[in-house]
Design a protein around this nucleic acid. Structure first.
Length: 196
DNA sequence: GTTCTAGAAC
DNA sequence: GTTCTAGAAC
């Protein structure tokens, strides 16, 4: 029944029925030719399916690594390689400013390094949680994660409570003191920081 | 992670 | 009345 299917979110385009639970979606995207930007034996770089800025890519290791917490000291080299590949891709867009980093508590399985342009100009950027996930300490810079793993042999994890606190923080422009009341106001304001 | 939408906020 | 956010999704 079409109506029931729509309500329960299990229509054709959804990944849930064919590809398993949504939280495994990245593993499917790693094999989607439409999303793959480049790849080699160690990593795959894909376009984020719902980009939160004009440029938003994910660098994923081929090796199955669920999250930051599962990282071991001997995987520093892999993390460094992911960072290096990301920065090489970034260098192809010399006019664009990127940040490279990890979400402290990602929703989707398989470790993924975000590289996202700092315009944050995208229709997929909709919620406070979206914004705060890239613009509070919830976003862990790649270099800091690498340093932590190198120095301590493990990545210091954020508690879910601490994560939620950051995601619910009041909105605040990443380039100036503007503290908008809601997302539409922030999105309109962000355009002023873009010189195109 | 997104979609949908009820009801809060304006 | 319209805009906007936040919680359920079996």
């Amino acid at each position: 029944m079409a109506t029931a299917a729509v309500k329960s979110g299990k229509t054709s385009g959804q990944t849930s029925s064919k590809n398993g639970h949504w939280s495994k979606g990245l593993l499917a995207s790693m094999n989607d030719p439409n999303l793959i930007v480049e790849s080699d034996e160690h990593i795959v770089i894909i376009k984020d399916k719902y980009p939160k800025a004009r440029y938003h890519f994910l660098i994923l290791p081929r090796e199955k690594i669920p999250n930051l917490k599962s990282l071991k000291a001997n995987q520093v080299d892999l993390l460094q390689y992911m960072d290096e590949r990301a920065q090489l891709l970034g260098a192809r867009h010399p006019q664009v400013t990127f940040r490279y980093g990890y979400h402290a508590i990602p929703s989707m399985s398989q470790l993924h390094l975000h590289m996202i342009s700092q315009d944050f100009d995208s229709p997929c950027l909709k919620t406070k949680r979206h914004w705060n996930s890239f613009n509070t300490r919830y976003f862990l810079d790649s270099e800091d994660v690498i340093r932590c793993l190198k120095e301590r042999g493990t990545v210091i994890s954020m508690t879910p409570v601490a994560g939620e606190k950051l995601l619910e923080q009041p909105l605040r422009c990443h380039k100036c003191v503007y503290a908008p009341q809601n997302m539409p106001k922030l999105k309109q304001h962000l355009l002023k920081h873009i010189d195109n």
